[in-house]
Computed example of a mutant assay.
Amino acid sequence: MPQTIAFTKGHGTGNDFVIVSDPDGELDLSADQVAALCDRRFGIGGDGFLRVVRAAAINAGRNTPDAEWFMDYRNGDGSVAEMCGNGIRVFARYLAQAGLADFDGAGVAIGTRSGTKHVTRTEDGFEVDLGVWRTTTDEVLVRARGLSVARPGQPIDVGNPHIVVALADEAELESLDLSYQPLLNPEPPHGANVEFVVPADPLVHHGVGAIRMRVFERGVGETLSCGTGVTAAALAVRNWAGEAAPDRWRVDVPGGTLGVRIERRDDGEHALLSGPALLVFSGEIVLA
């Protein structure tokens, strides 16, 4: 039986999301229904889907007992994902504008499938602590349309999996055809987002590193921005640059600019992502 649901559309540097409020966890949307909502021709349109639900209302919240709200994030094809850096800032904007959380103090804990993330308000939007980042010495070969040969990719984990590929110059970055999914060898068990990066010249200016990036997101395709991908790209370039590399980075993506900074804490290096988050319109839709 058709069901009418209320929604809000939001984005972070062009990475856009369909937001549905379901505080008591009453909605049980299938992957096909989520994909229909995110369809740009027959639905609302979005790179991903954010369900706003209380952590206590769903089983996933058992892993985030310190968070009142849980971000149930799905990719645009309806598949479940662990985390979304732009999405959680848009999620925070929704909570703030709906009066569901107060970001004017020390910030708010938000539950995700990769654990609780702490989000604070900034001058231009929100900053999220993505937690301790991880890399491996494994090398993944990446083939992409527009590149003449396979390139080595650096695995980076910031709550979800990424493979970062360094390119020689802006021309190589522009030549990529990301309407085709890059091929990874070996293929990670759960897939990965793939980021292609070019360092700025100079790489560091006034103590801040700068790179430009394009991304292919698993379950979505090329997007204008990917928050966790931006973070992974900055971390990979910082890792390649060596010990003298800065802890603050500016990353330009087709949808705008995001900031990444690293904080050293007792449990390791935390990666923090900052940038704008906007809500653009609300409405209702009939869902079959």
Rank of each mutant, 00 (worst) to 15 (best):
G131A: 12
R143K: 15
T136W: 07
I163K: 04
F196T: 00
N59E: 13
W249E: 11
H270Q: 08
A232V: 02
E174L: 13
V286L: 07
E222A: 08
D32I: 02
G43S: 05
H162E: 03
G207W: 02
P2C: 05
A31N: 00
T228K: 03
R265E: 06
P65N: 02
V237G: 06
A166S: 15
L27S: 01
G255K: 07
N193V: 15
L176S: 15
A92I: 00
L50R: 08
L176M: 10
P276G: 12
E263M: 12
H205W: 11
E123T: 11
A277C: 14
G275P: 07
A35I: 11
F216R: 09
R214W: 06
P246C: 13
T231A: 12
A60L: 08
D102P: 13
A233V: 10
L235H: 00
Y180N: 14
V132C: 15
A56I: 14
L184D: 10
D266N: 11
I5D: 02
A144I: 08
E139M: 02
D247G: 14
V18G: 01
E68L: 09
N86Q: 03
D267W: 15
D16F: 09
N193S: 06
I88T: 10
D32M: 07
F103K: 09
S21N: 04
H205M: 12
D177K: 06
G87S: 12
L279N: 11
T122F: 12
L176D: 02
G255F: 04
D157V: 15
D247E: 05
W249S: 13
A6D: 10
I58H: 01
A271C: 03
E170W: 12
D72Q: 01
P161C: 10
V198Y: 08
V80L: 00
R74T: 03
A171P: 00
T8W: 11
S79C: 01
P188C: 07
V215C: 12
G125P: 05
D129I: 15
D177L: 03
G221H: 09
E82H: 12
F42Q: 00
E284V: 08
G131H: 11
V197L: 09
P23M: 08
A144S: 01
C38Y: 14
V128D: 00
E82Q: 13
V215Q: 06
R93N: 15
N63L: 15
L235Y: 03
G259E: 06
R238S: 09
L50H: 11
A277P: 14
Q3Y: 04
E243P: 12
N75C: 00
E263R: 07
P2S: 13
S274A: 05
V194C: 03
G221C: 02
Q3G: 00
S175F: 07
L279A: 14
I44N: 00
E68R: 13
